[in-house]
Design a protein around this nucleic acid. Structure first.
Lengths: 110, 110
DNA sequence: TTGACTACCTTGGATAGCATGGTACATAAT
DNA sequence: ATTATGTACCATGCTATCCAAGGTAGTCAA
């Protein structure tokens, strides 16, 4: 496991990336994130829902209610045009950050 | 630039890594981090000193005052045995975290 | 009707980054 | 002389955000 602080700042990038491929509802997102990360990420509700709300508030996501065959109400989130633009920047941010961190953390060739 | 949240959870790993190579004082650390990251990281005092104090409080670092030829008092920090053990775990944490994140963020081979 | 699972949400605590402002000494510039 | 710049350390207060904990409510099988 990892300390929760490590996730800070990456949550939104991860969520947007997955939702950019295909709109999903909350619970589905949790499972999908776990599956794609090889079981590493297990988002808690207390992390997921506030993050989705922030992204929706900022106009990067839009949500719509749908009703499943079972009768369950589900809120599907999809990435807006604004969110798509933001995602490009966030991915670039992650790449340059991890590149810089690895320069320090990994023994570089002298 | 990156959002400050991204740094959360990585600061201690970065500091310990650099100090494990060679004990340094605060100001020197700031410059060294910047140099080794290709100019990417520019630690603020408000980030650095509280972090050093936390690491010292937790016994991962030890500090000793020295006086430079100029007369300047400097506090050199070096990694303790406990800090060395912790660093191993932190490096492993970073590797697995970034590996998992890249599984999601980078378009993997189908 | 009990239990397990799905699905959403909110509140409050804790942490950590950092803007800001402070102290103090050394050295260079005006 | 005084001002400015650089070095070197530290503390206070704000903010963002992760998430533990707790709640509601529907589905479905035993």
């Amino acid at each position: 496991m990892y300390r929760k602080e490590l996730l800070k700042g990456s949550t939104e990038t991860l969520l947007l990336t997955v939702l950019a491929v295909e709109p999903m509802y909350g619970y589905q997102l949790v499972r999908e994130m776990e599956r794609r990360s090889g079981g590493y990420f297990r988002f808690k509700e207390g992390t997921l829902y506030p993050a989705l709300h922030r992204l929706e508030r900022d106009g990067l996501l839009d949500g719509r209610w749908e009703v499943a065959l079972s009768g369950q109400r589900r809120r599907y989130y999809f990435v807006t045009a604004k969110g798509d633009g933001a995602l490009k920047g966030l991915l670039e941010e992650w790449k340059s950050f991890s590149r810089a961190a690895n320069l320090i953390l990994q023994p570089g060739p002298s």
